[in-house]
Simulated assay, not measured.
Amino acid sequence: MTDEPTASVPVLARQLEAILFVVDEPQSLVSLATAVAAPVAAVRQAIETLVADYDGEAGGPRRGFELREVGGGWRIYVRDDYDDLVAAFIGGQTPSRLSQAALETLAVIAYKQPVTRGQVASIRAVNVDSVVRTLVARGLITEVGQDPETGAILYGTTDALLGHLGLNSLEELPHISPLLDDGSDGFDEELVR
């Protein structure tokens, strides 16, 4: 199989499509152009090609997803027509236990919200991209806005999480400070005083 351009979707558009399928935050034209090492104008044209393709304007079917410009960037979303169907599907999935990484990420978001994915990653000192996607898919966290300085998506917990925890509000979360080590272990007694 070759990677030659087809009449309807050129190689650049397919490269962008591959990237857009895995991102969970809108990507600017500049960041996409950098990722594929192509001029911004060419990326803009390829994005327009994908939008038309997904909308069925290129002679193919109208897809169940669409490419939207949101917050100065591009991202693939479920088409509004299928929101209820997808929500019912996700809600009907057999719940499984959350991993330790998901629980830690959820705790950081619950206590620090609203918080960006990058801030959570900084606190946990690991990449949290897939964990955040999982928590969003399970309806435990949601996008609550954009950071005014960076444009990054801010995340917060949902009412579904409160229901799972048996809480009425976030104020009922236990105070975290008594659970944290004060850092005095390992120091000489004379230095602690």
Rank of each mutant, 00 (worst) to 15 (best):
V9E: 02
V23S: 04
I76P: 01
W74K: 00
G56C: 05
A7M: 05
S31D: 14
Y77H: 02
Y54E: 03
R75W: 08
T2C: 04
I47W: 06
V9G: 00
A42Q: 14
L32F: 07
G64T: 06
V36R: 10
D53V: 06
F65P: 00
G92Y: 14
S31G: 10
D3V: 03
A18S: 10
L29Q: 12
I76M: 10
L29N: 06
P26K: 14
E48Q: 14
L12N: 04
V40P: 07
V22S: 03
L67V: 04
A87Q: 11
A38H: 09
V43I: 13
G73E: 03
R63H: 12
R63I: 01
L85W: 05
V36I: 06
S8Y: 02
G71P: 10
R14M: 07
E66W: 04
Y82C: 00
Y77Q: 04
D84W: 02
V11W: 12
V30R: 15
E69S: 13
R68H: 09
D84V: 11
D3E: 12
G91F: 11
V30D: 08
F65E: 12
P5A: 06
A41Q: 13
Y82E: 03
L32H: 03
I47Q: 02
G60K: 09
P61T: 13
S28A: 14
A7F: 09
G64Q: 08
A42M: 07
L16G: 06
A35C: 00
S8M: 01
P5K: 01
V22H: 03
A46P: 02
A13T: 11
Y77G: 00
A38N: 04
F89I: 13
Q15V: 00
E57H: 14
A7I: 15
G73S: 09
V30E: 14
G92T: 11
W74L: 01
A35F: 05
A41I: 07
P10D: 02
L85P: 00
V22C: 01
A42L: 15
I19K: 02
E4V: 07
V43L: 13
A46M: 08
L67S: 04
A87P: 02
S28C: 12
